[in-house]
Structure formats: C-alpha cells, structure tokens
Design a protein around this nucleic acid. Structure first.
Length: 873
RNA sequence: GGGGAAUUAGCUCAGCAGGCUAGAGCGUUUGGCUGGCAGCCAAAAGGUCAUCGGUUCGAAUCCGAUAUUCUCCA
C-alpha cells in the first residue's frame, strides 16, 4: 500500500464515522508565544481544549504537518542516526470535542488497524494508565475493560505516568492515554520472547504506533488537577511509522516517502545507501531535512537569522554539513531533490506544489551562503593552526569563536583537527557555550502566572471592532506577566473593539475607562484565539466594568495602510504577474510593508504603473464589501485570494474593493471607502531573500508629507542656485565647474607648496655634513607633512625642522634623510620629543619623520634654534 | 530579545602591538609584443578606509554611538 493510499484510508475511515475533514494547520505557528512550530496534531485545537473557543464540529479528522526541532520536543540531533526520528512528520488523528469518548475511540482504532489496514491483531499490544498516587489518580480501569472485550488480557499492559499520562505542557489540558504497540519481529523471535516483554523498552521492532489520549483534566500552575467540563479524545498516529509497518519495512527511510529521495542522492553522489554507516546517516539527514525545510518555506517561513527562520536555516545547514562532510558535496545539491518531494506530497499539500520554484530558489541560495561560511571558517582554522597552535591542542575558546562568530560547526572543527593529528579542547568549548547560553537565558524570562478569573464561564471574547471603536465591557480575567523584571498586565474582556495584532496589522492602543481610573492599553495581542489587552499599570481594585475605547487616529491611519495594501497586492499581480504573491506584510499607522514573491528588481516604470493603478482605485472611491462568516467555499467562489501558510477557520471574512479587482481573505480593519486613503506612494523597493522582494509605501497624510519633502528639497536646491530656468542643466554645469576649479586649486596649491619649498631651500644651512633647514611657518599639519616628504626627495642629507602655527596652536615636524638615520645616530622621534619641551607638548614618530604638538606658541622660535644646535652636533 | 564579528579600489581581500603621506590579485583604460584555449610586458586611472563623535602631536588601526551584513544563543 503506498503512502498516499494509507493517508487517504485513514481520513476516509473517520469521515465515514461522521468526522469532518480539517486541513493541516501551517507548520509555523503564529500568535502563540509558547510555541514556534506545530509539534503535535492537537496544536490547532488547543483553544478548544482550553475552553477559549467552542468547536464548530464535534468530530474531526486530520493529518497534521509537525516539526520537532525546538523546545520540549527537540529531535534535530537524533535525526539520521536511527530509522525513525524525523524533524518534520505527519500526525494522523481523530478528535472528539465533548462528543464520543473511550469506547468509540478504542474500538474504531482497532477496527481501522486490523480491518482496513489488515494488520495481524496478534501482533498488537495495548497499554493503559496504571494510576498515580501523588496526583490521586486511579488506574484507567474504564479503558482496560473496553480493551478486554477486544484483546486478551495478556496483551493489555499497565503503564506509568511517564508513558500513559499525556500533558500538553507544564500547565493545560491533560489526561490518561492508551497506546497501541506493534511487534514486527519475525516469528522465531516472537516465539522466543513474548512481545509484551518488549513494549516501551526501546526495542526497534516493538514500537508504539497509535496513542489515544482521553483529555479530562486541566493542570494548574500549582500542579493541581481540575476536571474539565467536557471530555475530549485526541489521538495521534505517526504517519511515517505507519507506512513503515504497512509496507513491511524496518526503517521509515525505506518507505516510498523517502526511498526515491535517497535513491536520487545515491545517483548524485555515486555512493550507495546501505553500506557505509556515515553515508547512510548523511543521506537520511538530507532526506529528512529537505522535507522540513521545504514545508516550512511553503508555509511562509524563510531562512533568516532570528526566531523561527533561524531554526529553518539551522536545519538546512545541518543537511548541507552532512552532505559536505560525508557525501563529498561542495556544491549546492539539496534543492535538486525538491521535485521528488513535490511529486510525492504535492498532490495532498498544494502549498508545496504551488510554490516549487520559489522553494527551490530559496534552498539553493541558502546552500550557497552556507558553503561560503564554511570556506571562511576553513581559512580561519588553517590560519590558526599555522600561527597560534600550541601543544597540538586547538584552544576551546578559538573553537567556540569559530562556531559562535563565524558559524563554523564544531564537529567540522574536530574533524579537521583530527586530520592534522590535533585535538580540540572540548571542555573549553563547552564552557564558553554554557556561558553564552546563560547570558541569553538571563534576559527575557517570561513568568507564567495563572489567570485571575473575574467572571468565569464566558466562552470567547466578542470582537466588536469592525463596527465600533467604543464598547462597554466586563473584565473576564487578568494576569501579571514579568518580562525582564518589568511587570505587564494581560487583560481579557467579554467584548472588545480592540484589534489584536494579526495578519500583519498591528494591535490597537487605547484606554479602558472606569470609575476607578483609566487603564492605558499599550498594545493588543493574540494568544491563539484569545484577545489580550496589554497594560503597564492596573488599578486596585481591578474594575469589573469598563468602557473600552480604541485610539481612533491610530486605527484610522492603520486602516488606510491596510486597505492600500490590498489595492497594491492586486496591482502587483496585474503588473508583475500572478506569481507575485504575498509573503508577509506589516501594517501600522505610519506605513505599510509588503513582501512578495518576485524574481527580479521591480523597475521604476513598473513602480509608477503600480502607483498609478492604486491611486486610480483610490480616486474611484470604491465602497468596501465586508463579507463576514462566509464559508471558505463561498469565498473561493468570489475569487478571494487565499494565502498559503495562513490559518483560516472554516468560516472566513472576505474584504473586497470592486470584487473583480481585489478580494482577499482578511481579518483586519479597513476603510469604508477607498477615497479615505487619499494618496498612495511607494518609497522603497528591495530584495530581502531569494525570490522575495519588499515594497514599503505610505498613504494619505504620510504620503503627502513624503512628496512635499521631496518637492521642498527641489525648491531649496533651486533656491541655492538662484532659481535657474533649467535646474538639471544648472546642476550639471555646477558639477563641471567644480571639477575644473578643483583641478585649478590643486595646481595652485602645488605651486604654493613649491614656492614655500624654494624659500625653505634658500634657508638651507650646511653644518657638520648636514643640510639643516629650520623655519617657523604658518600652515597646518597636513601641509607641513606634505612639504617635509617632498623636501626629503629633493635634498640630500636633510635635517628639516618645521615649527608651524595653525589655529593658534604650535606644532613641529621633523624630517631626516635615510642616510642620516642610518649613519648619524639621529632619530626624528627622539629629536621631536626634545624640541616639544619648548612648546609644552609631546610627540613622536618614526626614525625619519616625526611630529609633535603643544600649547606654548612663544616657544616656536626656540624650537628652531635648539634644532640648529642638535644638527650642529 | 541577548552576545560575538565584519564593513578598506568595480570585485576578492591584505594592512589593525597608532606613525612606511593606504597595498595585492582580478577587472578597467592606454601603449608595446604576440596566431588562440584567463596570452605576455609596461604604464595609468580608480579610495570621504561604512557614517558620526571621542582619545592622541598623529587614527584605516584604540574607544563610543548609528547603519548594514554575517553568526551563535533564547
């Protein structure tokens, strides 16, 4: 059975049992401070479990793209070394939100495995929760009794809290779970030792394939458990592992999901898979990481040097590093594997197939950048070995510097050291690494505190901000959050006009007014579906009722920019082509920033065209069409632009300005009529990544200001030039004149210098085989230096002392011919120090040329006479 | 969000225990030689040493801020 069929069967089975099919949420998580990437199937339903929102369907089935590379689940360093760890994987799941519970979940799981997938039931073992006294939890006898009707007791095992009690995190929904394990050993091995002995014992052939979680508690910050009002089922079955079992393989990497990629790798590298250990590991690493990176980019997360983008960069770099070290690849090659992945998964995940070009380009460029980083690191290493190596040990501090500053992987340093018969001081490296981590962790620690409930049982904040900017509201709950020792307060209301940051639009500011005083809201953020008002101060007592007022000016200006963004998005596609899709955006009250896919610079002509179209639409004063709670299907029929990597509910909102021109799925706030935007002006266009460009633009008042400032600049320039008829010509002429004048000044200065030189030569005094020139002159240090160097070329046996005055400060320059320095035991630096005493100063320099500065102008004459004395010996 | 590093000619970089009035290779231009596949020889042009400020007699070099880029950690 191939992987596509396996996935399809799962989904269709539960669809038949009344489950609604939900699309995989994007792998990259937005609006959740605790999570960067989706790391479990339940992530997108978290709000339902937490009671922040009510489910639209009680039964749901899905396959979820997951990435485990950071935080609690970090599998990155494991990947490649065994047959089953992955960074990115799919989690198949069926869900019940307050609907069916243990009985159905268990019997359907059994039926699907043994009937649909034809797995031999004899090979399956199940586990149930044994209870835990410290939490006062009973054994899960209910699950045991249900299983007892299906499998003999000898194949039902009790498991500990570690294996059979599932928790979302330190706090939050949790409950006992029941796992299904499979024994895929051969018959001989099974006869010798019963599979039940090997369950949960890390045996590679007796493995868990499905976890059925029965969520019934909420874990509080004080570690106590509260029963939930509704009980839920959350199941997760690793898709890659299931494919391995059903395709009768011993490694996930032998399934049709990975084999084509590994075969191609074999071709490219001319190395065979399955022989050398290092080669196999490297190929698995590459095959796995390709998937993670490609899907992340498809979800809109580009490699970068901060946050989630940095994690993506690291994954790709790990692949390149293994390829470089163990597969001999010193040119980009990962991107070449992409078409195979698209061929395997592109049909089910259109975001992948639809952006193949872009993903390939981004990967290729990223590979090139990293190979360059490696080359620099190798050079630094060679230099170090040549110049600074002591006792054949590579200093840990240096190894860390290579890693920390130049991004050179430590295992490559070790490898290169070994090739030269050197050792790396790993203790020193670890010590520095530890310091770095402590530094980072010391700041930005967020303390999670439980919410203080003011009025429980309010399900979800009602957002009223599309229609009004002021509402009476009640405070539902609040909490204090400490960031960097500073306290911030999070407030949740039962209804609010405040727009929380999302879809690129910044959060609202404003006040919550009450009898007890106003609460100033500095920002509004979303945590999943929860709208959080952020304040720096909270009055005591915390008022129960407030009037929530949004900062109107900021909101309106932001709306201008947001609507203009939509108008521009359509204009971009019209001018550049349909590929110019949104890749990111930021809208606030000052400007709009828009990133989109495009492979070359947008020409000035195209910019003008885009501006023209947008301004045309503004002047048409189009009324907004605001379709709320429209079905996804309906939105699509309207021709609404949906974006990859955005998470949308089943019910969407469509914002249209002239339906044929612009219709987008959008949750933001917009103008009532486009005329309100006033004027649109692009102020910059630049590349930000491979195939991604960024436009910044302003609207209304800001745009006016921008144009005016340019206009003013021209006026000022024209004014400076006394308002010529043709400004451009006048400037050109000015530049020309300036050039020729500069040349003339140059000539004159040279003439003057040569005149001074002549005069100085006239003052030459022959004493003691030395040609002494001493003079007090009026010039700056630079000129004195110039003259000194020129005289050195002209006069043999020169002993020159220039005592100069500039800006009412005295200075001395001493120049000696080379032969005097060599034979005469003279040193300009020493001489100038001695002379400087006369002007209350100090100085120094090289043996043949030195300078000094001081304070006493009166001493200048003395300097010359004293110098004459020295020259005379 | 925090730490480290880099920024010098069109390109790639050297110079950085303060002081050779800023160098190399490639590229460009000019002249000469030469029957090619990076031809050879000679010469020239090309630099606010990222920006701003400070220390100093003197800063590409030391210090601080800013910008951009790289990089590690969270």
């Amino acid at each position: 059975m191939n992987s596509e069929t396996i996935r399809k069967r799962f989904i269709e089975y539960f669809e038949k049992k009344g489950h609604y099919i939900v699309k995989s949420a994007p792998m990259v998580v937005k609006n959740d401070p605790t999570l960067m990437f989706t790391n479990a199937g339940m992530n997108q339903f978290k709000d339902i479990f937490l009671g922040n929102t009510s489910p639209k369907y009680k039964r749901v089935v899905n396959t979820q793209k997951c990435l485990r590379v950071s935080g609690k689940h970090n599998d990155l360093e494991e990947v490649g070394h065994d047959a089953y760890h992955h960074t990115m994987f799919e989690m198949l799941g069926n869900w019940s939100f307050g609907d069916y519970f243990k009985k159905e979940a268990i019997s359907w799981a059994w039926e699907l495995l043994t009937k649909e997938y034809n797995i031999d039931g004899e090979r399956l073992y199940v586990t149930v929760f044994e209870g835990d006294e410290s939490n006062g939890l009973e054994p899960d006898n209910e699950a045991y009794d249900i299983w007892k009707t299906i499998v003999p007791g000898s194949r039902i095992l009790y498991g500990s809290k570690k294996d059979n009690f599932w928790e979302m995190g330190d706090t939050g929904p949790c409950g006992p779970c029941s796992e299904i394990h499979i024994d895929i050993r051969d018959d001989d091995a099974r006869k010798k030792l019963d599979g039940s002995e090997l369950v949960n014992k890390e045996h590679p052939e007796v493995i868990e394939i499905w976890n059925l979680v029965f969520i019934e508690f909420n874990r509080k910050a004080d570690d106590s458990l509260l029963p939930l009002p509704a009980k839920h089922v959350d199941t997760g079955m690793g898709f890659e592992r299931l494919c391995m079992v059903l395709q009768d393989k011993r490694s996930n990497y032998d399934t049709d999901l990975f084999k084509p990629i590994i075969d191609r790798l074999s071709e490219i590298t001319s190395l065979s898979y399955g022989k050398d250990d290092q080669t196999c590991i490297a190929m698995r690493v590459v095959a796995d990481h390709l998937r993670a990176v490609a899907f992340a980019i498809a979800d809109g997360e580009l490699p970068s040097n901060t946050g989630a983008g940095y994690v993506i960069r690291r994954i790709l770099r790990r692949a390149v590093r293994y390829g470089y070290t163990f597969l001999g690849m010193s040119e980009p090659f990962v991107y070449e594997l992409l078409p195979l992945l698209v061929n395997k998964m592109g049909r089910f995940f259109p975001e992948l197939a639809g952006q193949e070009d872009l993903i390939g380009k981004v990967i290729k460029q990223e590979e090139q950048i990293f190979l360059r980083t490696l080359a620099v690191g190798i050079q630094k290493f060679e230099e170090y070995v040549k110049n600074k190596l002591k006792n054949n040990i590579v200093d840990g501090k240096f190894a860390f510097e290579l890693f920390d500053t130049y991004g050179f992987p430590i295992d490559l340093t070790t490898l290169m050291a070994r090739e030269k018969g050197l050792q790396v001081d790993m203790k020193g490296f670890d010590k520095n690494m530890k310091k770095q981590k402590e530094r980072s962790r010391a700041v930005g620690v967020k303390q999670a505190v439980d919410w203080v409930d003011v009025r429980p049982n309010v399900e979800q904040t009602k957002f009223t901000g599309y229609d009004s900017l002021e509402t009476e509201a009640g405070i539902v709950k609040y909490r204090e959050v400490k960031v960097k020792g500073k306290s911030l307060y999070h407030i949740v209301l039962d209804r609010t006009p405040f727009y929380a940051e999302s879809g690129g639009q910044v959060g609202d500011r404003g006040v919550l007014a009450s009898d007890g005083g106003d609460i100033k809201i500095v920002d509004t953020q979303k945590e999943n579906e929860l709208i959080i008002h952020i304040a720096e101060k909270l009055p005591t007592p915390v008022p129960a009722k407030v009037i929530a007022k949004v900062d109107k000016t900021k909101r309106l200006l932001t709306a201008n920019n947001h609507s203009a963004t939509h108008l521009m998005h359509s204009a971009l596609r019209q001018v550049l082509g349909e590929h110019a899709q949104q890749k990111g955006s930021l809208v606030d009250e000052k400007r709009l920033r828009f990133d989109f896919a495009h492979f070359e610079k947008v020409t000035p002509e195209q910019i003008i065209k885009i501006e023209k179209i947008v301004n045309e639409k503004i002047r048409q004063n189009i009324e907004v069409e605001d379709h709320r709670d429209i079905s996804l299907e309906g939105a699509r029929n309207m021709g609404a632009t949906a974006l990859f990597g955005e998470k949308y509910d089943e019910l969407a909102r469509v914002i249209a300005f002239d339906r044929d021109y612009s219709a987008e799925l959008c949750g933001g706030t917009h103008v009532a009529r486009t005329g309100q935007i006033g004027f649109f002006k692009i102020i910059s266009e630049a590349a930000i990544a491979a195939g991604i460009r960024r436009i910044e633009a302003v609207t209304g008042h800001e745009a006016e200001k921008f144009v005016n400032s340019r206009f003013e600049l021209i006026e000022q320039l024209s004014g400076i030039l006394k308002h010529p008829k043709n400004l451009k010509q006048a400037v050109e002429k000015l530049v020309e004149n300036n050039e020729s004048l500069e040349k003339k000044v140059d000539q004159l200065q040279k003439a003057r210098a040569s005149q001074i030189k002549q005069e100085l030569i006239k003052k030459l005094e022959k004493t003691n085989n030395v040609n002494f020139i001493g003079a007090t002159v009026d010039m700056d240090a630079k000129t004195a230096k110039d003259i000194a160097f020129e005289l050195k070329q002209k006069v043999d046996d020169l002993f020159l002392v220039l005592a100069y005055k500039h800006n009412n400060k005295p200075g001395i320059a001493v120049m000696l011919s080379d032969n005097l320095v060599k034979s005469g035991n003279l040193h300009a630096g020493e001489i100038v120090k001695e002379l400087a005493k006369e002007i209350n100063g100090g100085g120094g320099g090289q043996p043949f040329f030195a300078t000094a500065g001081g304070k006493n102008l009166q001493g200048l004459e003395k300097v010359v006479s004293k110098a004459r004395g020295i020259a005379a010996g």
